[in-house]
């Protein structure tokens, strides 16, 4: 862990054209201050990999509204009409991935696996162009890993060495994405002394976290 930085400094680390894994499920468990800083910095041509693109005015929806995103890999865009219209007009390249497959592709990247085999999507549009493998009489799709330049993580608490804990349904993709970003930036709700998060309660070990966002002023 390299220390705590401001949202603006975090946004400065991210170049135009970067790929970003962003935690959250319809905006729950999404690092809002990081997103606000990205919008303020006016990045462009970003690839966003996330469960969904939330809705206009919230979470990843703000990045979409600001026109910073050229590519989206997500399981659901139904609550964001701007992502849908961007997809239809061709301004945003959208790849839709079943939710369980999406999280496993990210997990595979983070855990050093060459991909995953899943029966989800067999016989549907999702199978198109993909390799299938039969194991013990059952057909599986070969799904490839998804990694990114950055993982932007929302956590409940962080301690001084970057250990993270999460709250209730704000876990979602965050603990998985924290392994799959080349650079991991975590935005905690609060930062507490080492030991407050007990070893058993640490869901993301601090060794995975490169930068913590400073506390909200």
């Amino acid at each position: 862990m390299k220390g705590a930085i401001s949202p603006a400094a975090a946004a400065e680390l991210i170049d135009d054209g970067s790929s970003l894994l962003i935690g959250g499920f319809m905006g729950v468990g999404t690092p809002e201050r990081l997103i606000d800083a990205l919008v303020a910095s006016g990045k462009s041509n970003l690839t966003v990999i996330a469960n969904d693109t939330a809705m206009p005015g919230r979470g990843i929806g703000k990045l979409i509204t600001a026109g910073l995103v050229s590519r989206v890999i997500a399981s659901h865009i139904g609550l964001n009409p701007e992502t849908q219209s961007g997809m239809i007009s061709g301004e945003i390249d959208v790849e839709l991935v079943p939710q369980g497959t999406l999280v496993e592709r990210i997990r595979a990247a983070g855990m050093g696996l060459g991909g995953v085999l899943t029966a989800t999507g067999i016989g549907t549009e999702v199978e198109e162009g993909k390799q299938t493998i039969e194991i013990d009489g059952q057909l599986f799709l070969v799904e490839t890993p998804i990694k990114a330049d950055f993982a932007l993580i929302s956590a409940w608490q962080a301690d001084y060495v970057g250990n993270l804990s999460y709250l209730l349904t704000a876990h979602n993709f965050n603990p998985i994405m924290a392994l799959a970003g080349k650079t991991v930036i975590a935005e905690p709700g609060s930062i507490v002394p080492v030991g407050v998060i007990t070893p058993d309660a640490v869901k993301t070990p601090g060794v995975l976290v490169d930068h913590l966002l400073v506390r909200a002023s």
Partner: peptide
């Protein structure tokens, strides 16, 4: 007309 994405539906129906 409507392309919201499959979300978790494909995993749920498969599994």
């Amino acid at each position: 007309k409507m392309v919201p994405g499959m979300g978790g539906a494909m995993d749920l129906v498969s599994g």
